[in-house]
Design a binder for these strands. Structure first.
Length: 291
DNA sequence: GAGCCGTGGCC
DNA sequence: TGGCCAAGGCT
């Protein structure tokens, strides 16, 4: 009732093996937790660590970031990837100041309404920053549950209702325990039950794992992904934005044209950056990061 | 709901 | 080498 078959072992393992990440410290502010969660979307911890530290040093509160131009956030984001997240975080800061008195909201509903905050991030902030009871279902948890409970190597490509129901069913009743359970399962997936080479010998619940009991059968079915990058609009967008990030001010169009030969794709990528609010076309024909 | 959105490291 | 993967969200 207050427990699931794995919680005791997983919580004990976490107690002994959790990484010392700064956004997990007792004195970490809800804002610092939100910043970490946005940065960690599709981005490895090792690359987030220095970016998070620099960000928190420069903008310790939502009000600090809200007072800055959004272009400063894009430049500070540097090469973390998915730069719309920088814009989202800036918009979060302004919303938090205007609608929540400068404090990161603690309700899942209010969090979900913030730009760039989806079901996972809202649950993570409510749970990790505020100690609330929410099911945490990220790529790590999905993989752990797929193996342990369902007995398959990988979860389905798209998240299913069944996975949500399972995560909720496993949630310990007590809020503080549930919050530790969520981060503990994530950590287990990140450190032990990894995608490519799971360390079952170090897993606290390997004895209860359906996938291991079945002999660790390989994933069957269609290939899981096919995410090419070279030659895509994404690559062109990255090159264009890098020019603006590395410049101290507005740049002439020729500087942007120089990064990609094919004009149709180049213009399409630039237009998309402008539409996204990541690039500002000036009246004089030059381009700049937004104000 | 499938496709799109950056970047870098790893085997 | 290149496909795969990394604390997702939006359209």
């Amino acid at each position: 009732m207050n427990d699931n078959p794995y919680s005791t072992a997983v919580l004990a393992w976490y107690q002994a093996n959790a990484r010392d990440l700064p956004w997990r410290h007792d004195d970490a502010s809800p804002w610092s937790v939100l910043v970490s969660e946005i940065m960690l979307q599709q981005t490895p911890v090792v690359r987030v660590l220095p970016a998070w530290a620099a960000w928190m040093e420069r903008w310790p509160t939502p009000a600090d970031l809200a007072a800055a131009p959004s272009g400063d956030a894009v430049r500070m984001w540097n090469r973390l990837g998915y730069p719309r997240r920088a814009l989202n975080l800036h918009a979060c800061a302004r919303t938090i100041v205007e609608r929540h008195g400068g404090e990161v909201p603690d309700s899942h509903t209010d969090l979900l309404a913030l730009p760039g905050v989806g079901p996972y991030t809202a649950a993570a902030v409510a749970s990790f920053a505020y100690g609330q009871r929410h099911a945490i279902l990220d790529t790590n948890v999905r993989r752990v549950l797929a193996r342990t409970v369902t007995g398959v190597q990988y979860p389905p490509k798209a998240q299913t209702r069944a996975e949500v129901a399972l995560a909720e069913a496993l949630l310990p009743a007590e809020a503080s325990v549930a919050a530790r359970w969520g981060v503990a399962v994530m950590e287990l997936g990140a450190l032990v039950c990894t995608a490519r080479s799971p360390a079952c010998g170090e897993c606290p619940i390997s004895g209860d794992c359906a996938w291991r009991a079945a002999g660790r059968p390989a994933h069957d079915g269609p290939p899981r992904r096919g995410q090419t990058y070279a030659g895509t609009d994404r690559q062109v967008r990255g090159k264009l934005l890098a020019v603006l990030r590395d410049a101290s001010g507005p740049v002439p169009k020729a500087a942007l044209d120089a990064v990609w030969d094919e004009p149709v794709q180049r213009e399409r990528a630039l237009d998309a950056l402008v539409a996204d609010g990541l690039v500002d076309p000036l009246d004089d024909g030059r381009y700049a990061l937004p104000r």
